[in-house]
Amino acid sequence: MPEWIKVGTLSDIPRLGARTVDTHQGQVAVFRTNEDEVFALFNKCPHKGGPLSEGIVSGKVVVCPLHNWTIDLVSGEATAPDEGCTRPVAARLVEGEIYLSLPPLPEGEGRGEGELSGHRNHLPLTRPSATLSLKGEGI
């Protein structure tokens, strides 16, 4: 059963911005989109561990401040051509208050922050729906 922990209110986070939450599993970045949705990811870029909370948010992606990888806020996946994934953390918004639910610790991984490189195996990324998109961005 997931345990939901209150971490703050929506207004604590600027629109198109992020704040961090320190947890025993490592730092979590909590993002707020322009539509006031809230997403959370472990605050480590799948590339070289950059702090995603410091990136520029637009739509439902964040661009890492270190080398510009684009990370999907929903899935934690990097967008092509880059490959990799940071773990998403379940987040929900109830009456303006933000709750997180940390995932159970993965098998064989201890506490602390040393696990990042392990996430490169969350592939493959290609989504079948992408094969017909001729222009990428729609209109």
Binding site: I5, V7, G8, D12, I13, P14, R19, T20, V21, D22, T23, H24, Q27, V30, L100, L102
Partner: peptide, 11 residues
């Protein structure tokens, strides 16, 4: 100020 502070610390 929010820029320089973390939102929360949880166990």
């Amino acid at each position: 100020a929010h820029e320089f502070k973390s939102l929360a610390e949880v166990e």
